[in-house]
Amino acid sequence: MIMIKRLHKSVGVYIDMGNQFLKNISPEWMWKSGHYSGSSLRIGIPRMFFYYIYPDLWETFFGELGMEPVVSRPSTRKTVEKASQISETEHCLPNKLFDAHLAEVVGKVDMVFVPRVLSTIKNHLSCPKFGPLPDAARADIARGTEVLSIDIDENKRPLSKTLLLLGKKLNIQKSKTLSAIKSAFIAMESANKKMVLLNKKKGKPRFLLVGHPYVIHDNFIAGPILSKLESMGVEVELISFADDTPAKSYILWSTANKIYHKLNTLSSEDYDGVIQLTVFNCGCDSMMIDTYRQLVKDKNVPYMYLMVDEHLAQSGIDTRVEAFIDSLRWRG
């Protein structure tokens, strides 16, 4: 019992004790490490992966619970430089950026939030790289900081249940959690709507940008392309991932299947071209790109493929985008 009393003052002492008893009675992060300072806890959210998969959800949820969410700043060249210093060299670019974003919030907050996103829609799976994210964070970059984590697995329970569980982990009243979930879902819905269109210009050529949500919305990866397209005055639609009911196909990865579904139902009336944005070392895309390309080609829609790596240069992107758009003009 003495242990439990001391637990509330400073849990840090019990790191690595592996005490099964403590593990059973306290929230997961409590026995991991760190300290619990009541409601105005600062929680760090890396601006990558789940931040874009569930837009606005996390800030709203934690905010409503009375915590102070601290989101890392949008990626810049600096983020990439940091990433290449601290991250595993063979990670895909988003995973490297994730590490840099995580490092940015660690130290500024009381705990960081890294969920284990195993599946975002029923009967689908996420990229296998999402599985060990919280463990990798604990092992390396977020070591010494509390890592708050929860399994997001739609095959087991819907997101609302997951959030309820998260509230329970944080020792928060159920009613409070419930109302936080409600606001969070509303926020996510409106964010999802906002995320789709870049600039609406009647009568201009219209392009569809496809890629993983955290790729097409990341400032470093997609920023240069979007700004180039904007300066050329074309209308760009960013693929939306809000619809959770893509038709079943042979693809089990949720994002890939959503993209597949979108391209499969594409009509050449709607778009003047499809721009595929992918990142260096992305395993999922490496298997899918050929299928996507074929789908778009069969629809007779022009297709461009852009791969972004750490050494992305605006000039290179500019030339490619210009060439693509010019070629469409000649196509007539």
Partner: peptide
């Protein structure tokens, strides 16, 4: 193999 998704993703853990 280079870029192997599952194996590369546990490398930080192996380092620990």
């Amino acid at each position: 193999p280079s870029g192997c998704m599952p194996e590369v993703s546990v490398r930080p853990i192996l380092k620990r």
